[in-house]
Nucleic acid binder design. Structure first.
Lengths: 225, 225
DNA sequence: AAGTGGATCTCGCTA
DNA sequence: TAGCGAGGTCCACTT
């Protein structure tokens, strides 16, 4: 890992072209050759970058200014960094990172709802999680108090895509004489108005899910802090 | 901008919980208080981070180890960094970045196609770009040689989503007596087989677009390198 | 290897 | 300001 702070100018050409005017920035060169150019603000996304696999070549431009050329191995993406002045330059041996351990996204929400199907509707009971259909798995297959099949699509963010997905499942499942009739429930922590409108128009019920409350029901002691 | 190289252990709790075991990493602290934790590989995405607005508090854990706590201002997201050993620590004044100048994504493709509608089909002429409907803007509204309306959806990558989107527009527009009948054209630089099948099944025409050729027609001198 | 869907998405536009 | 779509998306997982 090499860290360089420099006044520089950057041009990228690839799927798009982009230009960074002369300014002071941090250039991070990772051991796999990848390069990140960060400013002193914004989010975690660099202003410009080159993803591995790629190669870095240090050279000098026609006018004598130091110029780095980073070229992608597979594509013809190129990053050109004109370095006018180096304010800091250091290299560090970091070793291999053991990697991030994640927990608790959509899968967790699905597990919780699978164990507490009644929060989705009175009398609802679970038949299967990840019920397989020809075009993919439905998150939850349930039966209601009357014994009718209910397909549940679970999202953290309930957008139109999720409604479309559930619609495709319902269309397919309603061709199966063993399941028919199947109604749908669209469950999400947050449902966008357009998605709600589309769902309602198609006879799909929308249910808002409180993740924290569900987690509380499941095990109040699980909090990290 | 502060750059720290340290053996550290990181815990994040917020929308999910995540843990980074003890290892040597780069910690980037930006002037707005945001923090990025990078390993010596991967892509431009940090292993862990905190987005602004947030505040960094330096403290000491019960066992005497240095501990940084980064707290989000609006939410209760928290990042805890246990710093076992500091290998490098430097601060730099970068100033405000003038920002990135971009060129040439889907919008550019849309502009080019708007000016060269005949590449989508003989006799096609533009009525409007971003033709507004109740559920959103159609990329291009055209009329063919016979005067019939044609709705065009433009994508760089032609996936099922795009076909669904165009289908929704067509359904709506075909209810409008002034436009009816409206047919659809799905234009993309690359069209996935599944999307092509779905489109064809719905009577939507697929057109592959050559971005470079279009750009060449428009102005061959515009290449950056 | 290619496709699919999620993301602590981020980013930019627009109504 | 909120919603919505695109991204040089990245990323993990599946087929």
């Amino acid at each position: 890992m090499r860290l360089v702070v420099a006044r520089c100018q950057v041009d990228y050409a690839g799927r798009l072209t982009a230009h960074l005017p002369l300014a002071t920035r941090v250039i991070m060169v990772k051991s796999d050759g990848s390069v990140l150019i960060h400013s002193d603000g914004g989010s975690y996304k660099p202003l410009n970058w080159m993803s591995p696999p790629c190669t870095l070549r240090e050279g000098v431009a026609d006018d004598g200014v130091t110029e780095w050329t980073v070229s992608a191995t597979k594509t013809d993406d190129t990053l050109r960094i004109r370095i006018e002045e180096v304010l800091h330059d250091s290299a560090h041996d970091l070793g291999v990172d053991p990697g991030l351990q994640k927990d608790g996204v959509e899968k967790h929400l699905q597990e919780l709802l699978a164990e507490h199907t009644t929060t989705l509707g009175d009398g609802l009971s679970l038949v299967r999680r990840e019920y397989m259909t020809a075009i993919g798995p439905v998150d939850l297959l349930c039966r209601d108090a009357a014994g009718a099949a209910v397909a549940v699509e679970i999202k953290r963010q309930g957008g139109i895509d999720g409604v479309e997905q559930l619609t495709r499942y319902l269309e397919l499942m309603n061709r199966d004489p063993k399941l028919r009739p199947v109604r749908g429930i669209f469950a999400a922590q947050d449902i966008k108005p357009q998605a709600r409108t589309l769902a309602t128009d198609r006879g799909i019920e929308c249910v808002l899910v409180d993740y924290d409350a569900l987690r509380g029901i499941d095990d109040p002691s699980l909090r990290l802090f």
